[in-house]
């Protein structure tokens, strides 16, 4: 019975990584199966095209496999994979050229925006999917430097430290980016959908 339990216990990521490096393709396939859903959800935050989502996730796993031996086991495998996925997405956005140009306005150089007290809640009549689509549209129009932290924090529910690890920036930078990103998001929301701004300068 004990042996059976041991046999049925799911293999740890680190074990699968080691086996994959040793040449067991099935181990890597298990890793893909384990995280493909999360990466599809992640890529979906950046594009609504199923073809693009599939391309991003596939590219992420292919890159990961080719660099498996560089995984140091110091962080969780998913954190490592997530970093590759994020870089793949950013690379994808650059190639798509759909992201607003950063060189024109470097967000890091922009001073702190005025504190915005406006409350912008989705209208109760809006369907959940409609809210999601509005948010997606606004995010698509934002510089990737802001979009990335907003997605990580608000949609991926990542802690500041995790965001800092993935983007290889300091926690202070995460804070300031998030602050500016939210201000920008709110500004766009109020400009494009003024009907949702309540309690202006409340």
């Amino acid at each position: 019975m004990a042996l059976k339990l041991v046999q049925e216990a799911p293999l740890q990521d680190a074990d699968l990584v080691r086996e994959a490096i040793a040449g067991n393709p099935l181990s890597f396939q298990l890793l893909v199966e384990r995280y493909q859903g999360r990466l599809f959800a992640l890529a979906r935050h950046y594009t609504s095209s199923p073809v693009e989502v599939e391309d991003i996730v596939q590219d992420t796993f292919l890159k990961a496999y080719s660099r498996l031996d560089t995984f140091q086991h110091q962080s969780a495998f998913y954190t490592w994979l997530y970093r590759i996925a994020t870089n793949t997405v950013l690379d994808f956005l650059k190639r798509r050229g759909r992201c607003p140009v950063q060189a024109v306005e470097d967000p890091e150089l922009v001073g702190s925006p005025e504190t915005d007290h406006r409350i912008v809640r989705p209208d109760a009549r809006l369907e959940r999917q409609e809210v999601a689509e509005i948010t997606h549209t606004i995010l698509e129009g934002m510089p990737e430097i802001f979009r990335t932290v907003l997605i990580m924090r608000e949609l991926e529910d990542m802690a500041y430290q995790e965001i800092a690890d993935v983007l290889d920036i300091s926690i202070g930078t995460v804070e300031s980016r998030l602050f500016r990103a939210r201000a920008r998001f709110k500004e766009k929301l109020v400009t494009q959908y003024p009907e949702f701004a309540q309690g202006l300068n409340e």
Partner: peptide
Amino acid sequence: AEQSLHAWFVPTAEIPVPTGFAAHVARRA
């Protein structure tokens, strides 16, 4: 006001993982 923004971030409709995706990716890798 900060709190009110959270309500905007709801997950979009899922894109399902195609059948056999993992095996296909592993083969290519």
